[in-house]
Write a protein that binds this DNA or RNA. Structure first.
Length: 824
DNA sequence: AGCACGCCGACT
DNA sequence: GTCGGCGTGCTC
């Protein structure tokens, strides 16, 4: 036996990116690759190539493993970019939310970093006779037709599967005839984008023609370096002209890496504003923080929280550190990223799921560089691998968008942010006009600071708007009285008057509808039949788009659609119509009653495409419309100074939502939307329509009684052991077979009852119960609710996750939601 | 996720 | 008797 030619480890234990494989696998290390823990690798796993993460290096293979099974590592994708504490953060996420480390890694890393090989299908024959095709099954014919529609006859298998339910059957048939073949395309890593760049070397002189001098001068004006394609366009010249200049030694043309970063519009520069006394006090407190501390910045709408954030970030950047700003939905806050860029220049990155794979990859690389920068992102940005993190800000911390639903881990960015700030360590600012009950109840009262726990947030209040603007008065309109007075319109007389004045006085308004689509449901007024989805137990929604000319019904859960029948399918009555008032219906009614108003629709249907939020907001800002009509999206962080009127049509559907947080949500939503009014020079007003004007939530909103409202809400939560007084965990099961899903749920519940009994804790088990909407996309859903009251004993209760999973057959999906935001 | 293996029903 | 359906288990 010859001695090994190199010292060190020859085997690596890795975590493989495969759904079922959660244990470590051992791979051999080829001589030309070196690996350290944390590196991202590519390995063969079964038939496929998949991504893997090196966990541990070994100097000898595990004795219980047959050495012939060991395969070599194929490639090292990237090395050494996890900041200290990063693995501990991911491990905490995995532990707290009861998922595997691999699943935590999957949500943290950008998709594409852990690449997997792709199964593709390729057509291998041409000119098939129609007779031969006719012999095939329908499934095979459809598949063949799809493949023939593409010039190369080559598709990803996943794409074909989603295109045709029967693709599997068709594929087998075509493979047997040898007409198609299926192959594995190896891992293709995202590559840096390379482009030609032109650099100015020498200034023009007498030797050159006027045209050549002109080009060099242009290049000099633009900073001496430009991308080739940009220069060609700007100078209206050709590559050959530039080559001549290159040969004469005036400029250089070379390939350079171009980072695909979302840069946005180049805003004019923005200078720090003078702070109000309350803002200054808040900023002073934030700047006095050392290490890990939390701050709850409670600033009413229009109180200038953003300015406090920006001035808190500035010294962090000056110290050479980075700041992370999390927002609930990136599309809703173009103003924030514009303002950050205007204040801090180019070192502002935007990171969210709507970026393309290339953009994400490049943004990720930019983060790793470690230069001081500001990262604005949605919840997953809390995992951005910043080496020198100095501050984390969660804006609109009450927003439900910070909670991930799917896939597991179902984490809350606020919870993870607290861990990240603790591990880094650095301060964490939670900002909101309507703080969550969770954060508000943990706040340190100034007088109690000594007794408080270190992790509890300092409470900083900005009770007034900047420039001494008043909060807009809120008028509550009783819609029952409107009806009694003979007003059958969906607009009260007071709202009608306000809308008429709006156009007359050239002001702008917002009309908020707490719903989506044309209406809630379609029903027959003769027999009561309700059109609902054949897949999900949920009523269909009426949609009318001029493009399709005929109205359609749509399921908002599984997207099933059908044409709207003219008569009731059950009793043939012609009185088969929609109820309620969705955005479209309101727009129609507005058009009839207030034809002079120019309208803009702002909801999930009109803001679906990339950049459409910004476009709509820009059009509104340029006074292309008088009234913006829309849903939930209108409530979030948009700052439109010219808005004087905010109208809310029926607050009731929010109030009556079946959830223990409905009151808190309604308060937050209504307060936020009211806050859109009167942010400029002109005073605002809010008109709130409801059928239950005496409801405590409506009363609290109309009087801006935040503290009193939350205190009452907290009492109720304590009485019922709902968060923040106690913890909730929901176990969710779903499967195609309803009986089997129910039986499995019973089985899990039984195991849990035994374990709870054995643990002698006060954990309460509710259910199993069918989910409120039992069937979604043909899957039956059941859930088990665990309530852990605030008691030292319940904290010791451990969920027997492995046993629960073992009881679940593979045909039933099982997920655990720790701290669920909704119990639907 | 794929893919192999293995056990039941419908057909030559 | 075989073919082919898909339910269960493994991948260093």
């Amino acid at each position: 036996m010859s001695e090994s030619l190199r010292s060190g480890d020859l085997w690596v234990e890795v975590l493989v990116d495969s759904p079922a494989a959660e244990k470590l696998y051992t791979y051999a290390l080829p001589a030309d690759i070196s690996v350290q823990p944390g590196d991202i690798l590519t390995v063969n796993f079964g038939a496929a190539q998949v991504g893997a993460i090196a966990i541990r290096c070994l100097d000898q293979p595990p004795p219980d493993l047959d050495s012939v099974k060991i395969r070599p590592i194929l490639d090292r994708v990237s090395s050494g970019f996890f900041p200290p504490g990063y693995w501990e953060l991911l491990q905490r996420v995995a532990d707290y939310y009861h998922t595997s480390l691999m699943q935590a890694i999957r949500v943290a890393l950008p998709p594409g970093l852990l690449q997997r090989s792709q199964r593709r299908i390729r057509l291998t024959v041409q000119n098939l006779s129609p007779e031969a095709i006719a012999e095939l099954s329908l499934a095979a014919q459809q598949l063949l037709h799809l493949l023939q529609g593409n010039a190369s006859g080559d598709y990803a298998w996943k794409y074909l599967q989603q295109k045709h339910k029967q693709a599997q059957r068709g594929l087998r048939e075509l493979c047997q005839r040898g007409w198609v073949e299926s192959y594995l395309q190896p891992v293709t890593t995202v590559k840096p984008k390379i482009q030609q760049a032109v650099t100015l070397l020498t200034l023009p002189d007498q030797e050159l023609s006027p045209r050549q001098s002109q080009i060099l001068e242009l290049l000099q004006q633009r900073g001496g370096e430009l991308w080739l394609q940009d220069l060609l366009q700007a100078a209206h010249t050709s590559v050959s002209t530039l080559r001549t200049l290159e040969n004469k030694g005036y400029l250089a043309i070379a390939s350079q890496q171009r980072l695909r970063l979302e840069t946005g519009v180049n805003a004019s520069s923005d200078l720090p504003q003078t702070l109000t006394a309350a803002q200054q006090k808040a900023l002073d407190t934030i700047q006095s923080l050392q290490g890990y501390q939390q701050v709850l910045l409670h600033g009413v709408t229009g109180s200038g929280k953003t300015e406090v954030y920006l001035q808190a970030i500035a010294p962090i950047l000056a110290k050479g550190k980075s700041a992370l700003v999390l927002v609930p939905e990136i599309g809703l806050t173009p103003q924030l990223s514009d303002r950050c860029r205007a204040r801090f220049g180019q070192n502002v990155c935007v990171y969210h799921s709507a970026l393309s794979e290339g953009e994400r990859y490049d943004t990720w690389r930019q983060l790793l560089a470690g230069d001081p920068q500001v990262i604005i992102g949605t919840r997953s940005a809390i995992f951005a691998p910043l080496p020198h993190l100095g501050l984390i800000i969660l804006d609109e911390e009450h927003d439900a968008g910070f909670k991930q639903e799917h896939p597991a881990p179902s984490y809350h960015a606020r919870t993870v942010a607290a861990w990240r700030a603790e591990l880094t360590p650095c301060p964490l600012i939670l900002g909101s006009a309507t703080p969550s009950l969770e954060s508000w109840s943990r706040r340190q009262e100034p007088g109690l600071a000594v007794a408080a726990r270190k992790s509890d947030p300092h409470y900083l209040h900005l009770p007034e708007r900047i420039h001494a603007q008043p909060l807009p008065p809120i008028s509550v309109i009783d819609m029952r009285q409107e009806l009694a007075a003979g007003n059958r319109s969906m607009f009260s007389r007071q709202l009608g008057t306000a809308l008429e004045e709006l156009a007359a006085q050239k002001q702008q308004g917002i009309l908020f509808i707490p719903r989506r689509g044309h209406s809630t449901f379609v029903s027959c007024r003769s027999c009561g039949y309700v059109a609902d989805c054949p897949n999900c137990s949920v009523s269909l929604t009426y949609h009318f788009t001029p493009a399709t000319s005929h109205p359609r019904l749509r399921c908002h859960y599984c997207n099933y659609t059908r044409p709207h029948p003219n008569q009731c399918p059950d009793c043939q009555s012609p009185y088969f119509k929609y109820f309620g008032s969705g955005t479209q219906r309101v727009i129609e009614a507005l058009g009839l009653e207030f034809p002079q108003l120019r309208l803009l629709r702002f909801d999930s249907d009109t803001t679906r495409t990339k950049g459409s939020h910004r476009q709509l907001l820009d059009r509104f800002a340029h006074a292309e419309a008088d009234l913006m009509v829309g849903t939930q999206m209108l409530t979030k962080g948009i700052d439109l100074p010219q808005v004087t009127l905010v109208g809310v049509l029926s607050a009731d559907s929010l109030l009556n939502f079946p959830d223990f947080r409905a009151g808190e949500r309604t308060f937050q939503t209504l307060t936020q939307v009211a806050g859109r009014a009167g942010r400029g020079d002109q005073p605002g007003q809010v008109i709130l329509q409801t059928y239950s004007p005496d409801h405590p939530v409506i009363q609290a909103v109309s009087q801006y009684e935040f503290e009193a409202f939350l205190a009452t809400e907290l009492e109720q939560r304590i009485a019922l052991h709902y968060p923040p007084a106690g913890q909730l965990i929901v176990l969710r099961l779903s499967g195609l077979d309803g009986d089997r899903t129910e039986a499995t749920a019973e089985l899990l519940a039984e195991l849990l009852r035994v374990r709870i009994h054995q643990s002698e804790t006060l954990v309460e088990l509710l259910g199993p119960a069918p989910a409120n909407i039992l069937r979604v996309a043909q899957h039956y859903r059941w859930q088990i609710l665990l309530k852990l009251p605030p008691n030292p004993k319940t904290a010791s209760f451990e969920l027997p996750v492995a046993e629960l999973r073992a009881l679940c057959p593979s045909s039933i999906r099982f997920s655990i939601d720790v701290d669920p935001l909704t119990l639907l």
